[in-house]
């Protein structure tokens, strides 16, 4: 179980490398999005490990927040307004 959490943290470090290094703004946005999905997986594994049910609520909230942020930045890059 702890080995799985360490492997997911390694993936989050890969995403952090791309977010610091990335040549364009979309690289940074997509790597932060992927990183928050990885954090969702880590939170779900911690809920399974310590048997705490409300950590799963935290996982759902992280997924919703990353989706909304990526959607807003994508619409901003396209150059339209948000209500279109």
């Amino acid at each position: 179980m702890e080995i799985l959490i360490v492997l997911l943290s390694l993936g989050a470090f890969f995403c952090l490398y791309r977010a610091l290094q990335g040549p364009s703004i979309s690289d940074r946005v997509i790597s932060v999005d992927i990183m928050s999905i990885i954090f969702t997986c880590i939170t779900a594994l911690m809920a399974l490990r310590y048997n705490i049910a409300f950590l799963m609520d935290l996982a759902i909230t992280l997924a919703i927040l990353s989706f909304i942020g990526t959607l807003a930045l994508g619409k901003y890059l396209e150059g339209r307004s948000l209500d279109d």
Partner: peptide, 28 residues
Amino acid sequence: IKALVCALFILLTMPVAAHVLSRGSLFF
């Protein structure tokens, strides 16, 4: 049940977010 709801949400929203971002960066 919460894990199943979270799986369905990720399965529905991740491709939408990637599509919006890639279309936006194409026009950018």
